[in-house]
């Protein structure tokens, strides 16, 4: 047998545009930095603690699961870290350590790994963690309660909870600018609206998240809230409050756009976003939960495979 040089052989194509999962995940992390920094400034050391714990345990759980299923370690692609980071941003800074650890466990293992890892998950892993924690330890998510020891120079109020429990009169004083600049109570990373919008727009421009989903989501919120407001302005808050409080902006840019649980075709993306928006307002206005974002996205995640069946006819297809 004569010796020959061995070449790398594969089927076409031989070019790749260089896009990587890893790049995407790290850029999303980059995009939340401003909002995250605002949260850390606002809440101080406890927030840093929660974030660090969340990110590290998320990576840890993924590594454990990789070992158990004897697959190559996937923590390098940054997805576990991203999951941990997004999860931490949705928590109040006072979250006890055991709740954070349980939460990341649920996110990474139940939410993602048991479905075969990234790409197999039919639901947004972060939201599964959030939802299960919210059901299990409701009290921990009472932001007003949680932040009682903080001293801020503005009205310490979680707008959506106030709306739910004390009626619209209690939040009339809040302006859009106040809300966007973070003068509201809320989770670590979700109160600084400017930061979130900036990050979201960056991601959209870079193509890491789809504008269709974010825009239709925000539109859905706006329109539904507007309809409610016009129907009964004494009971229901206007679109501005809904858009800029709670997890709305965070959800629009970082949660609803999670690849695996969202549609890929144009029209389905619009439907998907709008449906989440509508559902969010429905829960906030007539449901039991203070902030409907988590459950609304989960619910529409569920409908994603059905919605995504609306797709253009492929070339040459007979029917």
């Amino acid at each position: 047998m004569h010796k020959q040089k061995k070449y790398i052989v594969s089927h076409a194509p031989f070019w790749h545009d260089g896009s990587r999962l890893t790049t995407k995940n790290y850029h999303i992390m980059l995009a939340v930095l401003i909002a995250l920094a605002a949260g850390i400034v606002k809440y101080g050391v406890p927030a840093v603690g929660v974030i660090a714990l969340s990110v590290s345990t998320a990576i840890f759980w993924e590594l454990i699961m990789n070992k158990i299923t004897s697959r190559t370690a996937t923590i390098g692609n940054g997805n576990a870290a991203l999951t941990g980071l997004l999860f931490a941003m949705m928590l109040p800074p006072t979250m006890p350590w055991w709740a954070v650890v349980t939460g990341t466990f649920v996110c990474v293992i139940i939410g993602k790994e048991i479905f075969g890892g990234l790409g197999g998950n039919p639901f947004n892993p972060v939201l599964i963690g959030m939802a299960i924690l919210m059901i299990a330890w409701k009290d921990l998510f009472d932001f007003d309660q949680a932040l009682i020891n903080y001293d801020f120079d503005y009205l310490v109020l979680y707008p959506l909870a106030a709306l739910k429990h004390f009626g619209i009169s209690s939040i009339e004083s809040l302006s859009a600018i106040d809300l966007l600049s973070g003068k509201q109570t809320g989770a670590i990373g979700t109160t600084f609206g400017f930061g979130l919008i900036l990050g979201g727009v960056y991601l959209i421009i870079r193509g890491f998240v789809r504008w269709e989903i974010s825009v239709s989501y925000l539109l859905g919120i706006f329109v539904t809230a507007f309809i409610f407001k016009s129907a009964d302005s004494a009971t229901y808050a206007g679109p501005v409050i809904h858009l800029f409080s709670g997890y709305t902006l965070f959800g629009a840019f970082f949660l609803a756009t999670e690849d695996s649980s969202s549609p890929v075709n144009f029209i389905p993306m619009l439907i998907y976003g709008a449906a989440i928006g509508i559902m969010t307002i429905l829960i906030r206005n007539i449901g039991v939960y203070v902030d409907g974002t988590v459950f609304a996205i989960l619910l529409i995640n569920l409908a994603n495979p059905i919605i995504d069946k609306i797709r253009p006819k492929a070339m040459g297809r007979a029917v």
């Binding site: 890892g117 990234l118 789809r210 690849d259 649980s261």
Partner: peptide
């Protein structure tokens, strides 16, 4: 030579958008 990985599809939809034949590649 671009690396080929044994990842599973993450449903990002890039392929669907670029496909000239509108195949639901995802």
């Amino acid at each position: 030579i671009p690396e080929i990985l044994d990842n599973s599809c993450i449903n990002c939809g890039e392929c669907v958008r670029i496909c000239p034949a509108k195949v639901p590649v995802n």
